[in-house]
């Protein structure tokens, strides 16, 4: 087995991991702060892809415009969802919101399949990124390199935002004790809306990026949501570093599984998750309050 092949596969794992990172970041901060297990996250990801498709149709195939606008649109949809529905159930046990978001997921999927038909829509690789780039040790499709770069920028940006800004500090404080934060005179409910919107925007971004790689169809969020939950559990609920590490591990595990032991490629991540749950139930960077 030559080294170039292995490298190419490792890069693939990195790309797959990028999607998991973007998705789990949103899922994780929403759970960490709002305590909401957001089952609609996959559907929101799908919305991002459809928003990109629509923008490309309306504005003459401008992928850049779609890349910027779709996450914003999806983020706003997320905020509206939070402000109108999800907010009402914070006072109750976790599973109320779990049921609600599950219902929201079904609604979004059905509405999209009514508007856009269930067949799915074609989405080609954007013109700038067609072809491959010779990195010296491997030749890798340009668009996939772009995905990895964008994810890196987003992850660092998120980390800087939460660690270095005042708003980030409020969000982190709110994750630990939201009652205390509101007692300090901060309107926590607006922060909640913002956080949910951010999570949705990240999922939307993942959706835009995924559109050229795989085909977009109303039910595309279902399977990736399962893997994203695995990432969040491994990385630790509510942790950004955990999401990044978890995403990378899962991406690489799936790809390496395909090379070395194909029959278990898809089971490998669940075996790994089971191990983590046995040895360290809170995940790599999770705080003890959720599972231990």
């Amino acid at each position: 087995m030559d080294i170039e092949y292995i490298f190419a596969q490792l890069f693939n794992g990195l790309m797959l991991g990028s999607f998991y990172i973007l998705l789990s970041l949103g899922l994780s901060i929403v759970f960490g702060m709002l305590g909401v297990v957001n089952f609609a996250h996959g559907a929101i990801y799908m919305l991002g892809a459809y928003a990109a498709y629509t923008i490309c149709q309306v504005f003459a195939q401008s992928f850049w415009l779609a890349l910027i606008l779709s996450p914003i649109i999806v983020g706003i949809i997320g905020m509206v969802l939070e402000a109108t529905l999800i907010r009402r159930l914070y006072a109750f046990a976790h599973f109320y919101n779990l049921l609600l978001t599950f219902g929201v997921m079904l609604c979004i999927e059905e509405v999209v399949s009514i508007i856009y038909t269930p067949i799915g829509k074609p989405f080609g690789t954007p013109g700038t990124f067609v072809g491959s780039l010779d990195l010296g040790f491997i030749i890798f499709p340009r668009y996939r390199i772009f995905i990895i770069l964008i994810t890196m920028i987003c992850s660092i940006g998120m980390w800087l935002f939460l660690a270095k800004t005042k708003l980030g500090a409020i969000i982190r404080a709110g994750t630990d004790d939201s009652e205390m934060v509101s007692a300090l005179g901060i309107d926590i409910s607006r922060i909640f809306t913002l956080v949910f919107g951010m999570g949705a925007a990240l999922a939307g971004l993942a959706g835009v990026l995924a559109a050229p790689v795989q085909n977009i169809f109303p039910y595309m969020g279902g399977s990736i949501l399962v893997e994203t939950f695995v990432v969040v559990i491994i990385g630790g609920m509510g942790s950004i570093v955990g999401s990044i590490l978890g995403g990378l591990i899962i991406g690489e595990l799936i790809t390496l599984g395909v090379i070395f032991w194909p029959p278990v490629a898809n089971t490998l991540i669940f075996i790994f998750m089971a191990l983590i749950l046995l040895l360290r139930p809170r995940g790599f960077f999770g705080r003890a309050k959720f599972f231990e």
Partner: peptide, 12 residues
């Protein structure tokens, strides 16, 4: 597996 999103490892 059914519903695999990224076929690139197999394609490689």
């Amino acid at each position: 597996a059914l519903g695999t999103a990224d076929f690139s490892p197999y394609i490689l």
